[in-house]
Amino acid sequence: MSAAGQDIALKGSRITRFVIYTVLIVFAIFYLLPLYVMLTNSLKPLEEIRGGGMLSLPKVWTLEPWRAAWSHAQIGVSPTGLKPFFINSIMMVVPAVVLSTFMGAMNGYVLTKWSFRGSGVVFGLLLLACFIPFQIVLIPMARILGLIGLAGTTWGLVLVHTIYGLGFTTLFFRNYYAAFPTELVRAAQIDGASFFQIFWRILAPSSAPIVVVTVIWQFTNVWNDFLFGVSFADFDSIPMTVALNNLVNSSTGVKEYNVHFAGAILAALPTLVVYIVSGRYFVRGLMAGAVKG
């Protein structure tokens, strides 16, 4: 009787497994299909694409579209390729991510471990930043950037993204540090550690998971941003996303789809790398932050 029951259970679990895997594989194919199309077509000569068969593998393999996209495709008016804009984006993303993550960590630290009269209100206001649509701040932001002389510069974009990211980074760190035992901070106070010593020596070493979450979040958001880039950048600070758009729109005569595909993959590559390198921490960190707060 019990053996029969076990048998049924085993069979049942095998069927469930089969269904689960089938569904998962179907979804994986569905999501990978665009990447497949982009990758294969970026490795074909243009004639092959025009000859139809977007889904077929290249008959002639070529890296030329990649080379073109990177270094000599027509972007807007000049044939520079995406390279200078890729560098612009890096120059914008790295400081913006570092600054917003660090300031979010500081905010979270103060809001949980040094809370003061009205700190709840301050946190509420910071949270509000998460819900303000980008479009609303465009004009005031342009005015402010003009006033402080950062209009059209990479540092102007860094400032915008840092401020805009602060709501989220603060939320992440606040929730994470709310679960961090306050007694540790008190023990360090008795040991004589200062405000920053407590942060660097006690909290920071335990913050890796939430730092990873914040960095991934900020990196993807800032890297993928189009609106701020197109609104506030001058020619020498245009980020990758905007350049990609220009690439696709500015090709005179024939549309070089293979170059466009290569450019799009180049634009997506850094976020992909960030996810793959630290993705497993991402989920873990989100869970840790979600425990309390």
Partner: peptide, 12 residues
Amino acid sequence: AMVFQSYALYPN
């Protein structure tokens, strides 16, 4: 000097 209920040893 204080000994806390949770001991508050620095985990790192």
